Computed example of a mutant assay.
Amino acid sequence: MDAFTLYGEPTPPLEEELPAFLTGHLLVAESSMTDPNFSQTAVFLLNHDKDGAMGLVINRPSTTVLGDAVEELGETPWREELIFVGGPVQQYFVFVLHTGLPGGKKSPAAIEATPGVIFEPDFSVVKPALNREGTINLKARFLVGYAGWAPGQLEVELARKDWIVIPGSPELVFSDTPFSVWRSALRKKGGIYWIAAETGFKPSIN
């Protein structure tokens, strides 16, 4: 049998061919991940190439709200949005993931790694929109810090099976229930990962 079968439903094989570079994908921590920075995390990859990789953890909300971290934000509902911990590197910058600002405004450094998810490193571009009406349909995630990999480092971790890879999507990046994102991503992967999502443990099929 080529594929694991769960409740009579065939599931995809565990091994699959991935693109050489994974920009726009989600790295979902294996259930065996012990690094406290990444245990049960989902990391959205903003960039991945021969020079390394950079991503943002999307499911680690802090206890700090945006209004307490950003000066002169104004009286806007966005003041109460929680800031997320995007990773262990440079936790003194506020980055933004969003679905698109009015008029398509963005800085030259902005990245749309996958459709509907735009990374904006320049908060000053986003702040005026947050202080105006008309952003009711905007989804945004505010983060401090990021995760980074040196050239070849992520490839080593992937070969070691530290991460499960799935395509990134606005649905997961901007989930209203961030603490459920890790399990939701594993369920989306399917197969034996469905069991890991439900139990926190991935059984061996060897």
Rank of each mutant, 00 (worst) to 15 (best):
F179L: 07
V125C: 08
A196N: 08
G55R: 02
V28L: 03
F119A: 06
F95N: 06
S169Q: 05
A69I: 03
P12L: 01
T64Y: 15
A147L: 02
L22Y: 03
E17W: 15
P167H: 06
P108M: 01
T64P: 08
M54G: 03
W182M: 05
E30L: 12
H25R: 00
M1G: 15
T11N: 06
T114P: 07
A113R: 01
G190Y: 05
V43I: 15
K106L: 13
I205W: 13
T63V: 14
P61L: 13
G200N: 08
N137T: 07
P167N: 09
K127N: 08
F201Y: 11
P88K: 00
G200K: 05
D2G: 13
P36L: 08
V43W: 04
N47L: 12
F38M: 14
V85N: 10
P88C: 08
G190P: 02
G152T: 11
L101W: 00
S204H: 13
I111R: 05
A20H: 07
T114C: 12
A110H: 07
S180Q: 09
K161W: 10
P178S: 05
V144K: 11
T135S: 09
L14W: 06
E30H: 14
F4G: 12
P12S: 02
R187T: 14
S32K: 10
F119I: 09
G152P: 08
G116P: 02
E16S: 09
S32Y: 13
L143F: 08
T23P: 00
P36S: 07
W194R: 03
S31Q: 10
A42Q: 03
K202C: 08
P12A: 13
T11Y: 00
F93H: 14
D49F: 05
F179M: 08
T23S: 11
E133C: 08
K105L: 13
